[in-house]
């Protein structure tokens, strides 16, 4: 098989891997909260994840247009609030639900989605924990009905999604150091039921206090 692909490449035929490698450069979609409304979104990443930084940008977008956002924490860790404030987020307008475990977090997220008053609900679940299929079905339906972006933060890479097939958009947030006090955060969409996968968005961030 490898031999065949090599031969095709030699003959000038573009292989699937080349297409995937070239496609992101050609497709530049706008990374806006509006495009996520009504969808079940999973933001994941491996060791070099920038999931929290990516989510902070979504919360900031929501607050800038006068919409409400909420954070549901289902694990034993949480974002560092001074960094969110440094990103421009108004912490007074960001309710944080400390549910304790993913099951309770999913129930709390359901309450928030059912209200229909939030543009963005972030579900920060514990590492290596899966949401049940029933919970995912319910949450994705509620998100669609309420026109709310339900963003689920997980820590998986590649095709091993922590959530299931109900995820409408899945992206991997990755960061890399560019130079002194500058980091590139890249969001690569690996699954998009509406526009197709492969597109990416980049932004340059600075380091946190002391990291430069």
């Amino acid at each position: 098989m490898r031999l065949k692909i090599t031969r095709l490449s030699c003959k000038g035929v573009i292989t699937a891997s080349q297409l995937l490698a070239e496609r992101p450069a050609a497709i530049q979609h706008e990374w806006r909260l509006e495009s996520l409304l009504g969808r079940f979104v999973e933001i994941s990443g491996g060791a070099t994840t920038a999931a929290l930084t990516c989510t902070a940008s979504l919360i900031l977008q929501a607050q800038l247009v006068g919409e409400s956002a909420a954070w549901v924490a289902g694990g034993s860790s949480i974002f560092f609030p001074p960094d969110f404030a440094d990103s421009g987020i108004d912490l007074n307008a960001l309710p944080v639900v400390r549910a304790g475990n993913p099951h309770k977090a999913a129930r709390a997220a359901g309450h928030l989605l059912r209200a229909g008053s939030f543009a963005l609900v972030v579900l920060d679940i514990e590492d290596d924990s899966r949401l049940s299929q029933a919970a995912q079905t319910s949450l994705s339906g509620l998100a669609h009905h309420a026109n709310t972006a339900l963003v689920c933060l997980t820590r998986r890479t590649g095709f091993a999604s922590a959530t299931g097939s109900l995820v409408s958009l899945r992206l991997e947030a990755d960061r890399a150091r560019l130079g002194f006090d500058r980091f590139r955060c890249e969001y690569l969409v690996v699954k998009d039921k509406r526009q197709g996968p492969g597109w990416r968005h980049q932004e340059v961030c600075r380091g946190t206090d002391g990291l430069c």
């Binding site: 930084t53 974002f79 560092f80 440094d86 421009g88 961030c205 600075r206 380091g207």
Partner: peptide, 11 residues
Amino acid sequence: KKSCRPLVRRL
């Protein structure tokens, strides 16, 4: 709105 946002830490 910030021109250059910082990375965010998980605590």
